[in-house]
Simulated assay, not measured.
Amino acid sequence: MSARTPAEGPIDGTESREDVQSRVRSRLRALRADRGLTLAEAAGAAGMDPSSWSRLESGARRLTLDHLPVLARALGVTVDDLLEVRVAPDPRVAATPTTRDGMTFWPLNHHPTGSGHHAFKIRLPSDRREPMPREHEGHDWLYVLSGRLRLLLGEEEFVLRPGEAAEFDTRTPHWIGVVDEPVELIGLFGPSGEKVHLRG
């Protein structure tokens, strides 16, 4: 009984057709070599003659979608392996909290090496009321989620309510605390700000 002839619909996707064709042909050759299979052995496992397999590897015959499961089974891999599908990294952030000076920080983004702002959800306890201003290089950005936030900036004092934001040059002495109840906010710190606020 002869094997079914694959449909002639071309492989398609976000890459150009020629790029996909070239990548799959390279994978065919590499996987067959890794398994120590001759053309005849690989073709036999796929139910085709060696010349057909050779033409697919060389590009003399175009690969189609229906070829993929047949070729993958013959090589003992999945279609994704044959296509060398690139799996996206896990986008979730491991939100292990850090507590310092009574404040709790949950990271909201991955921490790349080098410069850039790092995002945190921050919870201030209800007893954070004694100002201890600090200054450092950079800028901080704050957005209040709940509670009323006290912001001391130089000689000025501001109260931020839920939905309000502030951005300031951190070379000015600054401090954040609560008016009465606990406060939750989102904060963006540069490398210097993160070092001061989280590591001291």
Rank of each mutant, 00 (worst) to 15 (best):
A72C: 09
A60L: 13
L28Y: 02
R29N: 03
G193C: 05
S192L: 08
D80E: 15
L83K: 06
V179I: 10
V85D: 07
A94V: 14
L108N: 01
R35G: 06
G102W: 11
E137Q: 14
G200L: 13
S192E: 13
S58Q: 08
H174R: 09
S16H: 14
Y143F: 14
L185F: 06
D49A: 09
G193M: 06
E8P: 00
H111T: 10
V93F: 06
D12L: 11
E15S: 12
D127C: 02
L75N: 02
T14E: 15
E84M: 11
R134P: 00
L160Y: 02
E15I: 11
L82N: 06
R25I: 05
F168S: 03
F158C: 01
L149Y: 04
L75P: 00
R32I: 08
G154M: 10
M1C: 04
I122R: 01
I176N: 02
L108P: 01
H174E: 03
L71R: 07
L108A: 00
E194D: 05
K195F: 09
P91S: 07
G44C: 04
S54Y: 00
D140E: 14
L145C: 05
D127K: 08
G36W: 13
A30N: 14
M103N: 02
R92M: 10
L39A: 04
A94S: 15
H197I: 12
P131Y: 07
G187V: 11
K121Y: 01
D49H: 10
E157H: 04
A45W: 02
G163Y: 05
A72T: 13
